[in-house]
Write a protein that binds this DNA or RNA. Structure first.
Lengths: 192, 192
DNA sequence: GTAAAAACTTGATTTAGATCAAGAGTTTTA
DNA sequence: TAAAACTCTTGATCTAAATCAAGTTTTTAC
């Protein structure tokens, strides 16, 4: 559990013993069963959340009741709704577990305190944000330029392992297509 | 020119006289004529760029020669290719001026130096990045959930003034539809 | 261990938006 | 200020992917 986050910190940044302990002192360990919610639409998100084990999805539900998957997050990634966190407005998103999942949570207040106290931690957080932004830009670019088939191949290539772990329906939704279309694409590409 | 950036800084952050002067000492003023490139595909992007006047677009060109607009940036916004800046790899993007444009540039080395020297400046930069990330997430969400018409109405609502300033072809491309489709949508919505 | 519920596949049909084409405005440039 | 080069509009046609529908396989839960 926590040791996975500890290892992540060691890889990403240089901390003194005291700083590491300070961070750990604020950590909240949370476990989710498959299908359990981490965040429900309408609630305000108040944490910074790191996944040590498992997989969650972030999605919205439209007025027709269809789900639209915004993102998947697995171990060694962060999750949450940054907009709700920043604005303290109710979230439009749901986050739930696709598998049994373990997380390390920090209340945002404590997290900000750590950022202020520990410059190396703050730098790490900013570097993650940079990368998240770049990934989001690339996803926008892909959605504008690629066909359904290209989107799927691009996804499999970029996130190997996801395709076998996450139900096709959810991947289809993430890619902005129907499950039927994805099923047909998979059949076709398997031939080649 | 620079005074517009100065005013922006004053609104977004609290700086001492000395800090303001330090920032200004690194500023490079750049002017672009309409259609002039700020960045061309294949070049490495090396700046942090703030627009004081005008409008630029960031876009890619696919193998069929079609342009895909990734973003528009106007006065009081930042522009550039963060991925190329971070990785120092050739950019996939072109950035050019839609109108005559004036910018304040900082080489990324100087910019990082300012971030290290001036905590308030660093905080401002991180806050901008947060907002950019949230905007990117919302755009992804819109592209997954909205129809062509809804995308256009959402765009007009979110960025009033852009529609009158930017050629429709480019807006259509930004929204991921053809100019013909956008023309028909505008005709229909004008009726209502 | 089996019934119920999800998840996936496959086919037939529909549709939103793309493509092709041609004319009317509008800007640019020389 | 005229011609060239864009930009926008409108109509006809096409197509990628959606929708509808029904059957099969896999997973979940008692």
């Amino acid at each position: 559990m926590y040791d996975i986050f500890q290892k992540y910190l060691e890889e990403k940044t240089e901390l003194t013993q005291a700083e590491s302990e300070r961070i750990q002192s604020f950590a909240i360990i949370k476990k989710l069963r498959k299908r359990q919610y981490l965040l429900q639409e309408g609630d305000v998100w108040k944490y910074d959340a790191f996944i040590t084990q498992g997989c969650v999805r972030t999605y919205t539900v439209d007025d027709k009741g269809s789900e639209h998957v915004n993102s998947f997050s697995i171990e060694n990634w962060w999750t949450g709704d940054r907009e709700s966190l920043m604005t303290q407005q109710p979230s439009r998103f749901n986050i739930d577990a696709i598998e049994d999942t373990e997380l390390v949570l920090f209340t945002h207040e404590n997290f900000e305190l750590l950022c202020r106290e520990i410059p190396a931690f703050n730098n790490m957080v900013n570097a993650i944000l940079q990368r998240s932004f770049i990934a989001a830009q690339n996803r926008i670019q892909a959605s504008l330029t690629l066909t359904a088939e290209e989107k799927y191949l691009n996804f499999v290539n970029k996130y190997p392992g996801f395709a076998s772990r996450i139900p096709q329906t959810m991947i289809a939704s993430y890619l902005g297509m129907t499950p039927e279309t994805l099923s047909r694409i998979r059949k076709q590409t398997a031939k080649k």
